Computed example of a mutant assay.
Amino acid sequence: MLAVVCGIPLFLLETSVGQYTQEGFITCWRKLCPLAQGYGHFVMKLYDFIYIIIQVWALFYLASSFTSKLPWASCDNTWNTEFLKVTIFICLFSKPVNCVGLQSLSNETVNHTIRRVLVVSGGIEELGSVRWELALCLLLCWVFCYFSIWKSIRSSGKVAYFTATFPYAMLLILLIRGLTLPGAWEGIYFYLYPDLNRLANLEVWIEAGSQICFSYSVAIGTLSVLGSYNEYNNNCYRDCFWLCLLNSGTSFVAGFVVFSVLGFMAQKQGVAVNTVAESGPGLAFIAYPQATAMMPLPQFWTVCFFLMLIFLSVDTHFVTVECFIASISDLFPKHLRAPGRSEIFVLLICLFFFLTHLTLVTEVNKIFL
């Protein structure tokens, strides 16, 4: 809660800078402090685009869900290997301290993620071939991104009405289903009653602050660009307060969705909740798919989950790209904002990063596993 309270002023400050100057995160400093104008954020925005790989994986899992039997629900696949050969791979998705819970993760789910989705190259000296299924998913993601932002805020604003609200419908469906699962309340108890002794650990507070800054998109330029689209006299204080409250409230509710399912999975396997609890990609692409495979109508719940994940990542991605393009256009308005040129510029940006991101859908190097 303290991290949220500290994050709101940062959210407000960056948004108000964009609204006051009506400029993006690079040119806004011309009106505030010319000496502070720099291009450090420009480099950071290039890194932000890597977030698209979450979309690619989620889209691949979504397509795999439309089968009579989920591919990660059985060992009858060509990519399956013995469990002992893949236990080390799960450390890619977990901190070393969590590797003690390897036995709680099924052979089928781990094999599908590592050997079917990612695949493993021969070594660090081998880039490996491009995974054509993931490359196709990557192309679809960038095509959607292009048509979401090709008319700037006129198109991205309309798309955001759907991509920002649809995940809440999926979240509600998954929440209702999660709360009705056996063992759900054990997972929720684990979620609501944490180890209070950990509060004395400084690392916990650092992680909380980092998560708030990441969740609020603070200090990466996105807020100042979005704020520049507001009217000059808009009440940004009210908007920032409600947006921060909605953001943190959504995260809190999503915790019930996650831990109710983890409690169900722990009861099914006869282990403690902390054994199956994962974070990051391991939760989304290993633990949760494994849990849905245990439910009746697993395809439906898997589709709901990955649809929600796709739209959440799509929304974040095209807004990031839009802010990047808007800031570059602010530097060269006569050349890039002319009729017809804006669409071409957006197309070139999307094409360039699509080709660049093909390196992210090659075989995973085994040194990272």
Rank of each mutant, 00 (worst) to 15 (best):
V258R: 03
L309H: 03
P333Y: 07
V271K: 01
V273K: 02
D330I: 12
L118P: 00
L309M: 11
G101Q: 07
V159G: 04
L196S: 11
V346P: 00
V204T: 13
F311W: 11
Y216D: 02
Y51P: 02
P339G: 05
T222M: 11
A266H: 03
L138W: 06
Y191C: 04
L297K: 07
N98H: 15
R198F: 02
G128F: 01
F25N: 08
F352Q: 00
C244P: 07
S94C: 12
N197S: 13
V159A: 15
E363Q: 15
L297G: 06
F324H: 09
V258C: 12
E207V: 09
Y229S: 11
S64I: 05
D330T: 13
V361P: 03
S16A: 09
C145F: 02
D315T: 12
S215N: 10
L336M: 08
W205A: 06
V303G: 05
F311N: 01
W57C: 08
I344P: 02
S156A: 15
F256Y: 08
S228W: 04
Q19V: 03
S217M: 13
R238A: 12
G38D: 15
L84V: 11
L351K: 01
F324C: 15
L181W: 00
L171H: 02
K151W: 08
D239V: 05
N235T: 02
L175R: 04
G128C: 08
P298M: 09
R177T: 14
T316F: 02
Y288F: 15
L262C: 09
F66I: 08
G263A: 07
D195L: 07
I153Q: 07
T87K: 10
E278D: 14
L243R: 00
S313T: 13
C240A: 15
Y232I: 11
V276I: 15
S327V: 08
R116G: 01
T15K: 04
S279E: 02
C323Q: 07
I367G: 00
G18P: 06
K95T: 13
C240K: 04
Y216S: 09
Y161Q: 10
P289E: 10
W242M: 11
K334G: 06
A73N: 15
G24L: 06
W242Q: 00
Q55H: 09
N77C: 09
W301V: 11
C91N: 13
L175G: 06
G249F: 04
S129Q: 12
L199A: 07
L171G: 15
G187V: 07
I50V: 14
I310A: 01
L243M: 14
F354T: 10
L355T: 10
L360K: 01
Q22Y: 03
A73G: 11
F256M: 05
C6Y: 06
A160K: 09
V361H: 03
E23Y: 01
W29K: 08
N234A: 11
M170Q: 03
S342R: 14
